[in-house]
Amino acid sequence: MQRSFRREIRSLEGIFLFLDRLMDVHGTDPGHAYVIRLAVEEMFTNMVKYNRGGDPEVILGFECNGKACIVTLVDCGGVPFDVTSAGEVDTSMSLDERPVGGLGIYLVRQMVDDLRYEFSGRCGTITIVKNLEDPHVHDHRQR
């Protein structure tokens, strides 16, 4: 199942509705559903903020079986950005040292089971995999 959403922050309401309906159909548990929503929001908002020259719409794809949910975001035009190569965040810093931004990709990398980026032609595709047979979050995961 896939659908296009306008490249703007207010599309998030429709994106959540789209995801929630599909995850309801699949009986996705609340923890896994939370991680999938968060991963999609973080990736989509990055596209809105940092790829303003891209096509007007981003294509969101979703499929789920009993073992995993796989979400894709296809972003055409503009500038390629490999989210898997984004810099690490030092979460041990003190309050004064911690930057206010830059946490989104870090959270996604910690919470999903696979995050891939491919660029082909004029389109970048982010693929997010969340295994449903594992706990929704893992303690002290290092990537």
Binding site: R37, L38, E41, E42, L95, V100, G101, G104, L107
Partner: peptide, 19 residues
């Protein structure tokens, strides 16, 4: 029910200012 990095950023910014 839900918070993402956007909400965390608001809280962190406020905590820094109050601190």
């Amino acid at each position: 029910d839900y918070i993402s990095s956007a909400g965390l950023g608001i809280l962190l910014k406020t905590q820094k200012r109050l601190g």
